[in-house]
Design a protein around this nucleic acid. Sequence first.
DNA 1: TCAAGTGACATACATTGCGTATGTGAAAGG
DNA 2: CCTTTCACATACGCAATGTATGTCACTTGA
Lengths: 195, 195
Amino acid sequence: MSIRLTKMAENREKLIAAARRAFAEQGYAAASMDTLTAEAGLTRGALYHNFGDKRGLLAAVVDQIDSEMADYAKSVGAKAENAWLGLLAEGAAYIEKALDPEVQRIVLLDGPSVLGDPSQWPSQNKCLQSTRSTIEKLIENGIVKPVDAEAAAMLLNGAALNAALWLASSANPQAMLPKTLEAFNLLASGFLVKG
Amino acid sequence: MSIRLTKMAENREKLIAAARRAFAEQGYAAASMDTLTAEAGLTRGALYHNFGDKRGLLAAVVDQIDSEMADYAKSVGAKAENAWLGLLAEGAAYIEKALDPEVQRIVLLDGPSVLGDPSQWPSQNKCLQSTRSTIEKLIENGIVKPVDAEAAAMLLNGAALNAALWLASSANPQAMLPKTLEAFNLLASGFLVKG
DNA sequence: TCAAGTGACATACATTGCGTATGTGAAAGG
DNA sequence: CCTTTCACATACGCAATGTATGTCACTTGA
């Protein structure tokens, strides 16, 4: 049974990996389950058995990508000198990661349409709560003004993700990145007690 | 010919109106063109003649809703005492308008997935440029710090739209609205020369 | 050890829906 | 008055999803 379990887990991973490619390259709607599963060496039967339906597969893919992003952002934030710089670094990490076309297409464009409001996703919610607790700590320490921490976390996250979308479709993303990060930091400084 | 033109325009409006309802209630993907056009007293023939394809119809619907939002936000902003308060009022107007389920589903969720990055849409671009020029004026007057006006406008818009999505799926949107607006204003004040 | 059951997937089928190709009736134009 | 065009309807083909059914390996209990 343990053997079958790991084999099943392998097939799940193969399907998710194939889906990441297909969804990223063709978009969720245009991706065919037949060709997608064939590339993984399986058929649609495996898909519906493991994920229920096409939506379930997208949910699994989004969760994986989103978790990778959250982990990366958190690790970057932890390296900062203090909590405030950590918050800014997390935002910057999100913007940079979201420049990846795969993230754009799957997490930022198709995800919300198919799965609904991102702030309700398990992965995003985890990230939001992390940011929220950081902000609460900053408020307690008198660094950030007393503000609704949850709303503040959501605003920062939303601005960062939107910035990435905007950046990616700009003429020269790499050139605009510094200016965008500067504007983002300025925006965030609105929460500071002293500018 | 003028008679036919107005009649055609009427049919366009009927199709767009039916599409607004269908897309809002069932979502873009689940909405059937057959039933949608039947509700407008027409067939799919009229649709493909007027809008090219399903995407074209969504583009027309999005443009209409988005223009209504931009007009409203601009009119609200114009009533403010000064340019800075006008900017804040525009953001608040956007958040409030985006609480409408129709706007949520069509403009914020399905729109980006089917039509791509919103900042590239004609309607959104118009609104962004409006915000941008307001920010540029505020920079010239020494009220706002020297920052990339386009990036700043995009960040404010993105934060506002995301806030609306988050608000709508919260337990008690009306109760959270004031706190969210307060946090939004605080965030925006990061651009001010003196807080 | 063997028969029955279960689980993971494959195969076959039915339904739905988009896009296009073709048809039609009415208005415009010469 | 005839013809051409235009706005829309009708008919068709294709593709894709979800489900129902089949199959085979593996486990389980007596």
